[in-house]
Structures are given as structure tokens and as C-alpha cells.
């Protein structure tokens, strides 16, 4: 039927197909594709907040300036640290939790799934403000507990100290990132062909061997997907920074996403901010491609 469509049917399929697509396309082209194109275009201009003035084309000037901007380079570095730390931790943690819970009874399973997903649902603002209180220098529970346990002897200003601030941010990020991967791994593990696992066990494979030889290859597509979404998420870490540290102290927690926000909304340099956005998008695309290749080779 697909190959041998009559011209009349083909026309019919075209018209009805696009009519069904139309409402969605209007939103997609108008509020996703168009701004994406504008992001790329304005990154070559001196665009500012005002949409009425004409933007002047300045070629690669924004990109050259980025290359020499110490704050941007610091932000890029911090962002890479966040990604390099959080992506493996999230993957390993969620794989462990998922493999510990996926054979449990339905009720217990969904209890754990819900609990690990709760920080995501709670919302970044609510989560951030409560952590800010827990990290607080005077009334925070972290200082209280660690002093009680004898780990530290005087209060630490967690978010105000360049030594600890980024680590504190990453810890919160981790708690809000494992929910989705756990759900995905639970579903992937329960779909693993159990006859293969049984056959391997009959052949004398122990648990570890059965996991790496049989289950791991089968959940590989899920792992790849989790790697990519976690990478994107970590790159976009914003609310935590904006509400907790504003990139401080002394740029210790400055990330690319926060710097884009700062450039666009405090300095009103849209063109410059968009140039960073383009770099960020290229970074994410490149990383996803690398992860894809690695996973394919395995």
C-alpha cells in the first residue's frame, strides 16, 4: 500500500497528514525552531534587550571574546566538573537501586520509585530553599550533625566557601537527578529476557557473570539514553546556582547556564549570551555523539 499509492490517495494523505500536524507545527516552528534560528543568528550580532533597534552584524566577535573571557572559561570548567562528577554517579547509583528493587512486590517497588522521584516533583525552588537552610552557617543541620559527630570543630559556611560550594551544589543536583534513571532502569531490567539468564545459570554462570554478560548488553540502550539525559540535565544546572550562590563565591560555582542568564539579563548582552548558548549546544551534541559511539562499540 505504501509503495503503490495512487496519485489521488497520495494527495489525500498529504493534505490530511499536514492538517493533523498543523496545530502542533505552529507551536513547534513558532516557539522552538524560530527562536533556535534566532539564537544562532543573533550570536553573530551585538543584539541587546531592545527588540526595536537594529542588530549590527559583527561576525565572530562574540565568539572571539568568549575565548578570552576568564569568567566564561571558569564557568565552562565548572560545568564540565559538574558533568564529569554527576553523570557517572547518577548512572551507577540508579543502576544499583534499580537492580535492588526491580524484583520486589509491586507495592514496595512503586514506593521506592516514588521516593527517589520525589525531589524532582517537589520542584527546584522548594528543594533549593530547604537545602539552603540545611547548609546554613548558623542554623543548618549539616554543621550541627558534623560537629556532633566530631568531624568538624567549627561551623563551616558551606555555600560561602569556594572549597565546598561546588561540591554542595553537586550533592543537591544528584538527589534531583536519579529519579528518572531509576524508573528507566527498573523497566529495562524487568524486560531482560529471563530465559537467557536462566540458561546462563544452568551453564554455571554466577550472578556477576550473568549480569555483565547477559543483562548489561540488553540494558545498554537504556544506559545510553540515561547518559545523554543526565548530561543534558547537568549542563543545564541553573536554579540551584541562581538561588544559592549566584555563581559565587569568587566564581567558584559559576556555570555556563548561569553566566548566559547573567549576561542576558544583568548585562543585557543578548548576542553574547546567545553565542554561549550555541557553544553549549555544540558541547552537548558532541558529548552525546561520543557517548553514542562508545556505547555502539561496546
Amino acid at each position: 500500500m505504501t509503495k503503490t499509492m495512487s496519485p489521488r490517495l497520495r494527495r489525500h494523505e498529504n493534505i490530511s497528514g499536514y492538517l493533523f500536524l498543523l496545530p502542533s507545527l505552529v507551536f513547534f516552528l513558532g516557539f522552538v525552531v524560530y527562536p533556535m534560528a534566532m539564537c544562532i543568528w543573533t550570536s553573530f550580532t551585538d543584539a541587546n534587550m531592545n527588540s526595536n533597534t537594529k542588530d549590527t552584524f559583527i561576525g565572530l566577535a562574540n565568539y572571539v571574546e568568549l575565548w578570552h573571557d576568564p569568567v566564561f572559561l571558569k564557568a565552562l570548567w565548572n560545568t564540565i566538573i559538574i558533568v564529569v562528577v554527576s553523570v557517572p554517579v547518577v548512572c551507577i547509583f540508579s543502576l544499583w537501586v534499580a537492580s535492588a528493587i526491580y524484583r520486589m512486590k509491586e507495592g514496595t517497588l512503586s514506593f521506592f520509585r516514588v521516593v527517589f522521584y520525589l525531589p524532582v516533583v517537589t520542584g527546584s525552588v522548594a528543594v533549593t530553599v530547604v537545602w539552603k537552610w540545611m547548609y546554613n552557617n548558623y542554623y543548618g543541620i549539616f554543621n550541627y550533625l558534623l560537629k556532633g559527630a566530631g568531624v568538624i570543630d567549627k561551623n563551616i559556611n558551606w555555600l560561602g566557601d569556594p572549597k565546598y560550594a561546588l561540591g554542595c551544589i553537586i550533592l543537591i543536583l544528584l538527589t534531583t537527578s536519579v529519579g528518572q534513571p531509576i524508573v528507566l532502569y527498573v523497566s529495562a531490567l524487568s524486560n531482560v529476557d529471563s530465559s537467557l539468564v536462566e540458561a546462563a545459570e544452568v551453564d554455571g554462570a554466577n550472578n556477576t557473570q550473568a549480569f555483565w554478560r547477559i543483562k548489561w548488553p540488553q540494558i545498554m540502550p537504556t544506559t545510553l539514553y540515561i547518559l545523554i539525559i543526565t548530561t543534558i540535565n547537568s549542563f543545564q544546572c541553573f536554579a540551584l546556582i541562581q538561588l544559592l550562590t549566584s555563581g559565587g563565591p569568587n566564581y567558584a560555582t559559576e556555570t555556563v547556564m548561569y553566566y548566559i542568564y547573567y549576561t542576558a539579563f544583568k548585562l543585557y548582552r543578548f548576542g553574547y549570551g546567545n553565542a554561549m548558548g550555541v557553544i553549549l549546544a555544540i558541547f552537548i551534541a558532541a558529548l552525546s555523539a561520543v557517548q553514542f559511539r562508545l556505547a555502539k562499540e561496546d
Binding site: P35, Q236, I260, F270
Partner: peptide, 20 residues
């Protein structure tokens, strides 16, 4: 096009969206 757009960081389009 739809799949490619999904892989991009959503926040990147926010600045151009303001002017729009």
C-alpha cells in the same frame, strides 16, 4: 527535526524567546 530539537538544551532558546 523533532528528534534533533529534543536533544538540544531547552534553555538555549529562552533568550531569543524573550524578544519574540
Amino acid at each position: 527535526l523533532i528528534v534533533a530539537a529534543m536533544a538540544l538544551p531547552k534553555q538555549v532558546i529562552l533568550i531569543p524567546l524573550i524578544r519574540e
